[in-house]
Design a protein around this nucleic acid. Structure first.
Lengths: 144, 144
DNA sequence: GCCAGAGTACTCGGATAATCCATGTCCGAGTGCGTACGG
DNA sequence: CCGTACGCACTCGGACATGGATTATCCGAGTACTCTGGC
């Protein structure tokens, strides 16, 4: 599976948008906080927009903002938005149909892996962006 | 995250070895069943050997075999063996230390993601290669 | 007939090239505001 | 003084290089079997 930091960056972006309230935040400003390129942010925002989590506004004073309240956005929503496709994937080349094992392993394996993916998704569903924002505020207060 | 089919291939290989009992299976034969290159199989076998799941034997009549009983190999063991590193990763570039959110998002996020990864690992621990082998035999009998 | 030795065939292990995906950079399309001009 | 039209600055969206990682191919190292020659 691709070990990527897309989920981490996306959560960072959404938490930032949640802290910004109603005002629109341009991708350049977000990129400054995340310390990456603005194009990366825009690509993530595109994925989040397709999933209906954020809205973007063109022109001066434009930018991105949450499309739904932060407490309604779970980490699972973020994961599904920015990590398309299943966690586990079957090989591209089909197994040898002559091999009795190759014929039957994949369906059985898919059942087991599907259960595991469901467990991951359930746990991700228990955390929301609002929870993260609370944690961040608490950490900031503690550090001050 | 890396969406790869290594786990699927590794499970296929281990199930094949479990069905082969004590006899050594060369990587070419395994590659024929999985329908991929023998080098891919050998690399997977190296990872599985490092984790102590299989043993390999050099020379004629050589090959690979399970180093521990199939019912002691969980899918989590396989996952850990062939997918090193954490499921979720923080971005390589550190966030802007001037941004109050960037400073505190990552630790909080890591806690939430760690819980989710644990849930995944727990569910993977519930399935073993022996379970898969049983499923495969049942499917083969049903198809016959 | 039995034993020792070399030869051979087969396997894994690592090094090397090709391909694919993700990331970083750039330019065009679209929008809202400000300004200037005419009525 | 008010309305309208133009121009400009700013933003997103997509297209194009670049780097790294993963995958596929090839060759060398090592081992067990076998055959042959000698005793």
């Amino acid at each position: 599976m691709r070990h990527s930091s897309r989920v981490a960056v996306a959560v960072h972006v959404l938490t930032l948008l949640a802290a910004s309230g109603e005002e629109l935040v341009p991708s350049d400003a977000i990129a400054g906080s995340v310390n990456t390129n603005a194009a990366v942010i825009r690509r993530l925002l595109q994925a989040l927009t397709r999933s209906g989590l954020v809205r973007t506004q063109l022109g001066p004073g434009g930018g991105a903002t949450l499309a739904v309240p932060a407490h309604q956005i779970t980490l699972r929503d973020v994961y599904d938005a920015v990590e398309p496709g299943a966690l586990f994937r079957m090989p591209t080349a089909p197994p040898n149909p002559l091999c009795p094992i190759g014929r039957h392993v994949q369906p059985a394996l898919e059942r087991h892996l599907h259960r595991a993916s469901d467990a991951l998704a359930r746990e991700l569903s228990r955390s929301t962006i609002a929870d993260l924002a609370v944690d961040v505020r608490a950490a900031a207060r503690h550090a001050a």
